[in-house]
Design a protein around this nucleic acid. Structure first.
Lengths: 353, 353
DNA sequence: CTGAAAGCGCTTACAG
DNA sequence: CTGAAAGCGCTTACAG
């Protein structure tokens, strides 16, 4: 007696809620095989005779059957879902990163569960949601990490990859552009071509990318005996670059060379300079970091440090998938060098050291 | 006998594969209640006494228990997953759209399953994957839709929302900017301010946005007796705008007013004109469509038709969620007007008609 | 308010 | 190569 009313209820629910989606049981019935066999046809075809495979596939096609990935995930304890946490996709550079990740992962049979956070939003709650969906791996991009996240990442065995960020002591894999070396490249380029008064327009103070780029730049300047570098705070945005540059150029002795923490900031800086009637690059050199597509536009023609994005993404995906196989993955870091791309926004001597 | 070995196997699997994640059974045992009760605490707290809720939550916190969303989805037949299909996130404007969708949906307790397709890739296979994950709804953005997709969307009851695209006869909801009216706005603005020779730089020929913007522009010009509009093919990219504009300006009688199918194209056009030494806006007016953030940058100061993105996204989310409640949702269309934003790239009379 | 149990749609060890 | 059945971790109708 408990069975039959249940059945009824459940059938009604099925009609109402199943969205007309066919299950393996239905396919099995029509093909005259067991449900297990249908399942095998869609998971490991080699376990089934060719004849049966054909029969099942024919019926499946007729009914437009597709295995339910949610049910499969529950059973497999593997969702093939990769969580990507990203703040501010709109900051140019990250859309490309996201697109590239999405496509690489998709080609490898993984799906992307996307979480974006506002600029100052905490990543921790978002992390909880990702974990609830049992993601097989997690990619964390331009997110300000709190120590909370670090602890969480330790609690779970879910592999975590930090893209272009790092956190000391976090049990995570890290792939970064060599931001320190990039900063040094810029210092050398500006000094080599005789610039006299240098400035740095910073990015978000808490971002490791900003910290490293500045450290490399300053460190190399100091090594070569240059002191008194000007500094303005920016926030990785066009507007902040524009304002910071304006402030610098209003100084009694303004800089003749500015290194900006990223390209967008540099574009703002360039526009500010031109709006003040300053000749680029004769009176002022501006150098960015990233090499986003707009850097090549003739309105900017920005000299910049190119991040090896494709390599960084390849490495990230490789590391992540590797560690998904190994329950005891280890924290590792991959540092990939960038390259100075010379365009019109900086007066650089072509002779390279 | 069949039970006990199963148990063993399954326990071993649990240790190896469960990633150390705690289930409701474990919480129930430690809290001295049934598994159903634990479940109720995390789904509908009102069904449980306050005392029990407290006890369960305490244990849950201790064990860091989080309900498994995959299991819940299977049981509920609702995943809270929304699929977003998008081509070329990198084309500015869409990162913003994606971010906004992601944040709105997240706030409403939905998660985003992201699928990107290459420019010429077929959306159909990607659709299959989204449906396998039992998404509750589907948002399709700047994707070239084939008739295949239309048919698929009919087969499933999964609500489909087309964002800024439409397909005739598709059973889907549609939210678009009024692209036709936008084109007409531009025609009037250029004609009102005495432009003599007009041109259109088109976007991807198959995109309904492009078709409509052009139709509105041409239609209005014709109504006002203007004939002989020049036309160049672009592809919604900076480079194609640059080249198309170059070709137009090399004509024996070049245009003095160009309407570009989107902002990026217009930026390419502006740079091409300036690289040829043409004065903007004295000798040439350039008008875009979208109003992406870079349009406001002083290097471009682009006059453009602003798409009411926020409204479009609000409407989209509202329509989609509404239809997820109603199994028999109907195809509907929402057309939202855009607005001409006057900046420095076009010589327009300020007196509006 | 609470528990026992069926069910969601798969996978897979076991037995043939 | 194939089928019967347990199990994945939840929800929820049913009975108390």
């Amino acid at each position: 007696m408990p069975k039959s009313p249940k059945k009824l209820t459940s059938n009604r629910r099925a009609l109402a809620l199943n969205n007309g989606r066919v299950t393996s049981i239905e396919v099995a019935r029509r093909a005259g095989v067991s449900q297990s066999t249908v399942s095998r046809v869609f998971s490991d075809r080699n376990l089934v005779s060719q004849e049966t495979v054909d029969k099942v596939l024919r019926v499946a096609r007729q009914l437009d059957y597709k295995p339910n990935a949610i049910a499969r995930s529950l059973s497999n304890r593997r969702t093939d879902l990769i969580g990507i946490l990203m703040a501010e996709i709109t900051s140019p550079f990250y859309p490309y990163v996201l697109e590239k990740f999405s496509q690489r992962l998709h080609d490898l049979g993984k799906r992307v569960l996307l979480f974006t956070t506002g600029p100052h939003e905490d990543a921790d709650s978002v992390l909880q949601h990702a974990l609830q969906y049992q993601v097989d791996g997690l990619i964390i991009a331009n997110i300000t990490l709190t120590s909370g996240i670090v602890k969480e990442s330790l609690k779970y065995r879910t592999p975590v990859l930090l893209f272009n960020r790092y956190v000391k002591g976090a049990r995570a894999m890290t792939v970064v552009c060599d931001n320190v070396a990039g900063g040094r490249l810029v210092a050398d380029a500006l000094l080599d071509s005789g610039h006299q008064r240098l400035a740095y327009i910073a990015g978000r103070p808490e971002a490791s990318t900003n910290v490293d780029r500045e450290a490399g730049f300053m460190e190399r300047l100091a090594e070569r005996g240059y002191v008194g570098t000007l500094r303005e705070q920016g926030y990785y945005t066009y507007e902040s670059g524009y304002e910071a540059c304006r402030r610098l150029l209003k100084l009694s002795t303004p800089p003749d060379g500015i290194f900006c923490a990223n390209d967008i900031t540099a574009m703002g800086a360039l526009d500010a300079a031109r709006d003040l009637g300053i000749k680029i690059p004769e009176q002022l050199s501006v150098i960015g970091f990233d090499d986003i597509p707009a850097a090549a536009w003739s309105a900017y023609s920005l000299t910049t440090v190119r991040q090896p994005v494709d390599q960084m993404i390849e490495s990230s995906v490789a590391l992540l998938l590797e560690s998904m196989e190994q329950p005891n993955w280890k924290a590792t870091a991959r540092v990939i060098p960038g390259e100075l791309v010379r365009r019109g926004s900086a007066r650089l001597t072509t002779t390279v050291v």
